[in-house]
Nucleic acid binder design. Structure first.
Length: 570
RNA sequence: CGGGGAGUGGCGCAGUUUGGUAGCGCAUCUGGUUUGGGACCAGAGGGUCGCAGGUUCGAAUCCUGUCUCCCCGACCA
């Protein structure tokens, strides 16, 4: 039993000025988290209890599958990160010690774990191995926000698998996917598993666990008729049949004046055609193997470019950057809005939906003019066609079943198959059955602990406060003590013992406050069951059992209280 | 990093236009009346107004510089 009076805990009536979303506001108002610096928070006793419960479920599910917990250092030497080639990444916070040696704070632990196993696991007989830790990470995020949703310092569970072959690594990946499903099911969160981009970690096979929430930073596209789900960043946009007959046959080239028509919409209106039948020209700068080059992208006027697809398809080192207006002018001789592919020296990539377009309307590379009847084969050369546009709600689902629908999510987990990306660069090998040295096939798997806790709050709250899922509530039972007599106290002591024997935890609001204050705070803190015990009912042998989620009040006799509590919690 | 905004007791804010020596609500402390949905009355403590420099008889307010924080865009658990 924990008493409020021992907690040094305070709640607030007003929302903090910097909190934008309900979960952030509630966690701060409930006194559970406090900001020290942007993206850096202290977890108060209540928040810590919730996070420990998240961690306990995570540990339990990992341990069940034979994963082993370890703990790696947070301060890591530069040399290690140079081996993998990730030293200098902008999220890495680097520092020097007194000997002027370089270190960074651990943003992730692929390097350390690879170093940890590389000289110890030397035989295929010792594989597979999955190791994990729960630890504080530091990433120097450009813009932290939404409380724990995007912090610079945060607690993460990260696991790493080592296998002897691609097939075995895929098995580990599948196993971890199951572990993750069990974890999020146990937590009681509403989530979707979506196909994702690997980002800086690298790797090919990767999925995200997204907790559904309006305020989520990620847009997800899901099929309304199958279990297809993908992050919009990578969601395939199928080539669809071209509805516009006028673009399908070749015509003669003709320049026409388009003064004051700067956007595709303007142009579409003035020509009285669909934006999708026009062609948009965009200019980018990308780097490939550290070589910088410019390229041009064509897509339908109605589409938006997806720079992650460009990066992946063109094997760029990073997402390409759009050229500035001045750079565009230098390249084409015209301002954006009047630019087109004809006469350009850069490589030109086109969205696959443009394959059928034999007669395009594009900018003339001359301010205030466009060209019509432009033929790709005759008037300029397209390097290649591929899917490079952002997929959209309403488009057919890539698995051929149903239509895409847009929803938003918070990425709480991410699983990757890494292959030999780290084991090869860091020379981590073992001997296979044939006695041949092979690099480990690796996978890595992360869950944001604080983010998961906050996502739960985001998904479960009402106008009065937090409504904790039973799985991660800081306490199971909140006792609002309205009066403080010896009889009541000994009853509460006794009751606590009984419910604690059932594995439940008890929080007692023993402050000298008026009932209204206690009720408001109990609502705000949001533990699943509330007991209201005051002189009035007590002398008649009654207490009130309140279900925070349903707001149902049950009058209970003193004796039956434990049964009523079990009815709600067990 | 680009664009917008803000720094005034622990929290939320007013005061800045038009310089005159700092105020409100919440929170805290004391006393009293209250006590089943954020009580009321009386009193008290707490701020060199982000920092530095300048103008002025006088600066929260005007000028210069600087730091920090927040919001919108590219990253990620």
């Amino acid at each position: 039993m924990t008493r409020w009076s021992q907690l040094g805990h305070k709640t607030y009536k007003e929302n903090p000025s910097d909190a934008e979303i309900p979960s952030h506001q509630l966690l701060v108002r409930a006194g559970m988290i406090k900001k020290l610096s942007p993206g850096i928070y202290t977890y108060g006793p209540l928040a810590l209890r919730a996070m420990r419960k998240v961690e306990a479920i995570i540990r339990d599910e990992h341990d069940k599958e034979g994963c082993q917990e370890l703990l790696m250092p947070m301060v890591q030497p530069k040399a290690l990160w140079e081996e993998s080639g990730r030293w200098g990444y902008p999220e890495l916070l680097s520092l020097k010690n007194r000997n002027d040696h370089d270190f960074c704070l651990g943003a992730t632990h692929e390097e350390v774990i690879t170093d940890y196993v590389r000289n110890d696991i030397t035989s295929y007989k010792e594989l597979p191995v999955i190791l994990y830790q729960v630890q504080t990470k530091y990433r120097d995020e450009i813009r932290p926000r939404f409380g724990l949703m995007r912090g610079r310092e945060f607690i993460m569970k990260d696991a790493y698998s080592f296998d002897e072959s691609v097939e075995a690594a895929h098995k580990s990946y599948a196993k971890m996917k199951e572990v993750y499903k069990n974890i999020f099911n146990k937590l009681g969160l509403e989530y979707r598993i979506v196909k994702a981009d690997a980002g800086a970690i690298g790797g090919s096979l990767t999925e995200e666990f997204q907790v559904l929430a309006e305020i989520g930073e990620d847009e997800l596209l899901v099929s309304d008729n199958s279990d297809f789900a993908a992050n919009i960043e990578i969601c395939e946009a199928l080539k669809v049949a071209c509805d516009f007959d006028h673009v399908k046959k070749e015509e003669s080239l003709e320049e026409f004046a388009t003064p004051d028509l700067k956007t595709i919409e303007d142009l579409a209106k003035s020509l009285n055609v669909e934006a999708a039948s026009l062609v948009k020209t965009m200019f980018f700068e990308g780097t490939k193997e550290s070589k910088v080059f410019q390229f041009t992208v064509l897509l339908r006027g109605s589409d938006q470019v997806n720079s992650i697809k460009l990066k992946n398809r063109l094997s760029l080192d990073d997402e390409p950057r759009m050229l500035t207006d001045t750079e565009v002018k230098a390249l084409t001789g015209a301002s954006p809005g009047s630019c087109g592919p004809v006469g350009l020296k850069t490589p030109i990539y086109a969205d696959h939906n443009l394959r059928d377009y034999k007669s395009m309307v594009v900018g003339a590379n001359k301010d205030g003019f466009h060209l019509k009847g432009v033929s790709p084969e005759r008037d300029f050369k397209i390097e290649s066609f591929f899917d490079l546009a952002l997929a959209r709600e309403g488009a057919p689902s890539p698995d051929g079943k149903g239509t895409l629908k847009s929803i938003r999510g918070v990425e709480v987990g991410h699983i990757f198959y890494l292959g030999q990306k780290y084991s090869a660069s860091m020379k981590a090998s073992f001997l296979n059955q044939q006695g041949k040295a092979c690099f480990f096939e690796m996978g890595c798997y992360g869950i944001g602990v604080g983010r998961t806790m906050q996502a739960a709050v985001e998904q479960s709250h009402d106008e009065d406060g937090i409504v904790w899922p039973k799985s991660i509530a800081p306490f199971d039972i909140h006792i609002s003590l309205l009066d403080n007599t010896d009889e009541i106290n000994s009853y509460v002591e006794d009751l606590s013992k009984k419910v604690e024997e059932l594995g439940l935890t008890v929080f007692v609001d023993d402050r000298k406050e008026r009932p209204g204050v206690k009720f408001k705070d109990a609502d705000l803190l949001g533990f699943p069951v509330r007991l209201v015990i005051g002189k009035r009912g007590f002398t008649n042998g009654l207490i009130e059992v309140f279900n925070r989620k349903t707001k149902e009040k049950i009058e209970s006799s003193l004796k039956e209280a434990v049964e009523k509590i079990k009815g709600i919690l067990c």
